[in-house]
Simulated assay, not measured.
Amino acid sequence: MTELFVRTATGLLLVAAALLTAVLGGTVFAVFVAAVATAMFYEWTRLVRGRGAVWYASGFLYALIPALALLWIRERDAHGLELLIWVFIVTWSTDIGAYFAGRRFGRRKLAPAISPGKTVEGLYGGIAAATLLGGAWALATGLGVALLALAPVLAVAAQAGDLFESGMKRRAGVKDSGTWLPGHGGVLDRLDGLVPVAVLTAAAQLLGLT
Rank of each mutant, 00 (worst) to 15 (best):
F5M: 13
R7A: 06
T10N: 07
T10L: 12
V15K: 05
L20I: 15
A22W: 02
V31W: 00
V31E: 03
A34C: 01
A34E: 03
A35N: 02
M40Y: 03
Y42E: 06
E43T: 12
V48M: 08
R51W: 11
R51D: 10
V54K: 04
G59I: 12
F60I: 09
Y62K: 04
A67D: 00
L68C: 01
L70K: 00
L71S: 00
I73T: 02
E75D: 14
A78W: 07
L83W: 02
L84K: 01
V90L: 13
T91K: 08
S93F: 15
T94F: 11
I96N: 00
Y99I: 13
F105R: 10
R107I: 13
R107G: 04
K109T: 10
K109A: 15
K118S: 03
K118D: 05
K118L: 10
G122H: 03
L123I: 05
L123T: 05
G126H: 03
A128M: 14
A128L: 15
A130V: 14
T131Q: 09
L132H: 00
L132P: 05
G134C: 12
G135Y: 03
L139N: 05
L139I: 15
T141N: 13
A146D: 13
L147E: 06
L150W: 12
V153K: 01
A155D: 09
A158T: 12
A160P: 01
E165H: 08
M168H: 03
M168P: 01
M168F: 14
G173C: 11
V174W: 06
D176M: 11
D176I: 10
L181K: 02
G185Y: 06
G186D: 09
R190T: 06
L194I: 01
V195Q: 05
V199I: 15
L200W: 05
A204P: 03
Q205P: 01
L206H: 03
L206E: 07
L207S: 06
L207A: 15
G208K: 06
